[in-house]
Nucleic acid binder design. Structure first.
Lengths: 322, 322
DNA sequence: TTGAAAGCGCTAACAA
DNA sequence: TTGTTAGCGCTTTCAA
């Protein structure tokens, strides 16, 4: 049978309140503390977090809501979120929402019923409507109109850097390839930053912006690049899109970085120890994860959290640029 | 203020016991049920899982212990575990242990304190020592001596298939490249299956088996392949090792599949919608995840779970074989 | 079919 | 500094 606080109290010949104080680090006479500790060790006592939660209304648990963990950007993010939480004595509920608003709602309900202390969310539905304002919530890469804190990489500057790096490498005909989501999100700033630099230099930019969900991607890409054979500098909304472009270009007989140069966005690594896939604008995923957790912790402790944090990106030169 | 069962009972003019019965689907007179449901809706009542857990000693939560979520094999596995659990009304604690026995132990303690109903573990320490025998535990790819259930892919047959596929493609000089872990695990069977076919055909096999953790991998690979220029058929313990071999071979001026052919193991996809990286023996990850959850569910319901499940693998011909 | 009440294991307020 | 106790919100037994 599992030992309870009562058992410990009896063995140590003290009241349960005293045991509780010892457990929670409240000041107790040294001698009593020793007795209690001995009893705890003897009985192999471990506090019941459910009883505790019932009283305190806290769970030391947070929920991470993602589209899918099966994607290196999200799994890297989750990895660091878990690591940071664990260091803070928090547990993590993993919630794959699959971009499904219904499932996000279900999770919100689960979260309420389970005294979850806060949420970190990378979501694309109007989740804010279901999150009550007193539940700490940090959004990633998504700016809600409500007073919800968010953490994001500097997408605009990332776009600027991409343009600059392509120009530095003598690209003459630039283009941007991306997708447009029905939900507003920060990735649009990548394009804006890219355009900004091009405009300043008075350079025209070609654009392939496909409405999401993207249908027949390969066909659209093939058509676009067949009609624009002069393009020699490409910036894509993310690394995956760059991979898709590379594949199509290969079929068209073009190879990076000799025939054209291409820069992605995200800085995806398929695992910690492996390399970036391509030349890319790297998001500081570890820092974003840590900042999210810290912001959430501040909210939980009723401190004033930053309303928005924008973290710097950097260029990684891989094998798809000269 | 959050509504409690008492509030619902008062509004519906019934006892709390009746409300509890309605919530839990115990038979109640239709008319009463309607009254209670109305009160629940009116008050926006949601049961408190912590109070419930305190009484029932169940949490509808399971823990997934992994080395790291930041790896496509594990994140795919986690993805399907989460999906299946969610369908069963279960929640998932994500535990990255980083191959760190200390952290695994910490997690076990957390699990005990939080009434976690069961564990799915991909672990490489002697975790079984800390898991009490009445806590449902399913191990992946690892065979404990204790009566612990495990789920694994058919690694032996996978090795056989790899050898066969290389031979079918006219490879004359085969080799195996892998690592040996201090902890026994099922991946050794990949090598064994590979050898088995080669021996049957009377073919010699070269071997590079490096003790883990592997130091100076690239150097070891370079040396090995420089000394064995005749090798034209390679089987590696996993997909990543194959990528490393490919990289080294490129530096040696060799290209797959023209100069040599190579088959990996795992069938890693960096995301659901992307392709396999190379020619490989594919593990049925989705099925493994589902089977693990089902086995765990059976244990939780005190049914007799299968002691071991070995699931079939298949060959995927990619661009690294002819 | 239902209501009343005990009690799960803990925290915190109060009293000593 | 410490013991006692009420009560967190539920489930479940017992009796009606």
């Amino acid at each position: 049978m599992k030992a309870t606080m009562k058992d410990v109290a009896a063995l140590a010949e003290v009241g349960v309140g005293t045991v509780s104080r010892v457990i929670n680090g409240v000041k107790v006479k040294d001698k009593t503390k020793v007795k209690v500790m001995a009893a705890i060790a003897e009985l192999n006592y471990e506090p019941d977090e459910y009883a505790r939660g019932l009283k305190t209304n806290r769970s030391n648990t947070i929920a991470l809501i993602l589209p899918t963990i099966w994607h290196p950007f999200f799994s890297e993010f989750a990895y660091y979120v878990e690591e940071t939480l664990s260091q803070n004595g928090y547990k993590l509920f993993l919630c794959n929402a699959n971009g499904n608003a219904e499932k996000e709602k279900e999770y919100i309900q689960m979260i309420k019923q389970n005294k979850v202390d806060g949420i970190i969310g990378i979501t694309y539905s109007d989740i804010d409507k279901y999150v009550s304002s007193n539940l700490p919530f940090v959004s990633i890469d998504r700016h809600f109109s409500e007073p919800i804190s968010y953490v994001t990489a500097d997408n605009y500057v990332g776009g600027q850097i991409a343009a600059q790096e392509l120009l530095n490498r003598n690209c003459k005909s630039l283009c941007y390839v991306g997708g447009t989501s029905p939900y507003p999100n920060e990735t649009n700033n990548r394009k804006a930053g890219f355009y900004n630099v091009c405009e300043e230099k008075g350079l025209p930019v070609k654009t392939l912006d496909m409405p999401e969900p993207i249908q027949q991607l390969e066909q659209q890409l093939t058509e676009f690049f067949t009609n624009n054979l002069d393009i020699d500098g490409i910036f894509t909304v993310n690394d995956y899109m760059a991979l898709d472009v590379i594949k199509v270009m290969k079929k068209l007989g073009k190879q990076a970085p000799t025939d054209y140069q291409i820069i992605g966005f995200d800085g995806v690594k398929i695992s910690q120890e492996r390399d970036y896939l391509i030349s890319t604008i790297v998001q500081p995923i570890e820092e974003m994860a840590k900042t999210s957790v810290e912001t959430l912790m501040a909210m939980i402790l009723n401190e004033e959290p930053p309303k928005r944090v924008i973290l710097p990106v950097f260029f990684h030169g891989g094998e798809t640029t000269k």
